[in-house]
């Protein structure tokens, strides 16, 4: 019974916003579109730049404020799922210290005395009741605490992880560019309704180029655990995949693009060198 209900609810949830989305796309206000021709620092050679709408956050229904070009090297790269996967594994592992711990035969309490004489009893010879052969004895080659799993992914894999994820997100319509983060009220219901009506999936990651977000959006996202704010310098593969939709402000999208392109077109021997713990 409950499963039928859930299914019915799901179908409603899926069908309603899609109608809304259709409505929104048909109602483009064509007069105020701002189409900017970009001055490329590293012009795309063969592949065409990818075009995105600049959207708004100040009304619940979607308005298209302009058309914006993104560099294909960053937002239209080959979506290498394997590189994305290695980035996720790296992000999970570099901060993981495993505290699983077992005691060796020396550390288990007791077992100092020879349990029975060496000879004459017809039993197997033993020197300690905490030998690994005994129940309650020590463990051989068991996990020892404080085992770090830290490693560093090669520099360019980290870079291509970002471009692959951004490209995959954009290709699947999960990346939206907004003009700014100004919303009319600090009510989190407004934001929830906006996300629902635009079919942005429940969880949303909003990325701005500064680490000072406007007050309204900070308060509104405070109550929503699945809507998160992040500055550009915090952008990473794991968070992008964890959230269904990625919202970039226009300046953030530009900043990400500039930074990645700059790194792809400069001498990175220092970044590529073997990681040393004291290098930072």
């Amino acid at each position: 019974m409950t499963s039928i209900l859930i299914k019915a609810l799901k179908s409603i949830y899926i069908s309603v916003p899609s109608q809304n989305a259709k409505f929104a796309t048909s109602a483009i206000c064509s007069n105020t579109l701002s189409i900017t021709n970009k001055e490329w620092k590293y012009p795309p050679t063969f592949t065409k730049p990818r075009e995105v709408w600049i959207e708004n956050l100040d009304t619940i229904e979607e308005k298209k404020l302009g058309l914006f070009e993104l560099h294909p090297t960053v937002y239209g790269a080959t979506p290498r799922i394997d590189i994305i996967h290695r980035n996720v594994i790296w992000q999970r592992k570099y901060r993981w210290v495993s505290w699983a711990h077992t005691k060796t035969r020396a550390e288990v309490r007791g077992g100092g005395r020879k349990p029975w004489p060496q000879k004459g009893l017809g039993k197997a010879r033993h020197g300690s009741i905490r030998s690994p052969l005994f129940r309650g004895g020590g463990v051989i080659h068991g996990p020892r605490a404080g085992n770090t799993h830290f490693f560093m992914l090669p520099f360019h894999l980290r870079l291509y992880g970002l471009t692959s994820t951004l490209s995959a997100k954009l290709a699947q319509d999960d990346l939206h560019v907004v003009k700014d983060l100004d919303i009319p009220s600090d009510n989190s219901e407004y934001l929830a309704e906006l996300i629902l009506s635009r079919n942005w999936g429940p969880s949303v990651l909003i990325v701005d180029d500064t680490d000072y977000a406007p007050r309204n959006i900070t308060v509104a996202t405070g109550n929503l655990p699945h809507v998160n704010l992040m500055p550009v310098y915090g952008l990473n593969v794991y968070s992008m995949l964890k959230h269904d939709t990625l919202i970039l402000t226009q300046s953030a999208a530009e900043k990400i693009e500039d930074r990645i392109l700059q790194l792809l077109h400069s001498d990175t021997r220092k970044q590529q060198a073997k990681f040393k713990l004291d290098q930072v």
Binding site: T47, P79, I81, V88, T165, A168, G201, L241
Partner: peptide, 19 residues
């Protein structure tokens, strides 16, 4: 690249669970 990205459009969302 274009082909790969178009293929992604018809596939489920790339997320932590399916890579």
């Amino acid at each position: 690249t274009e082909k790969a990205l178009t293929m992604l459009r018809s596939l489920p969302r790339v997320s932590l669970g399916n890579i």
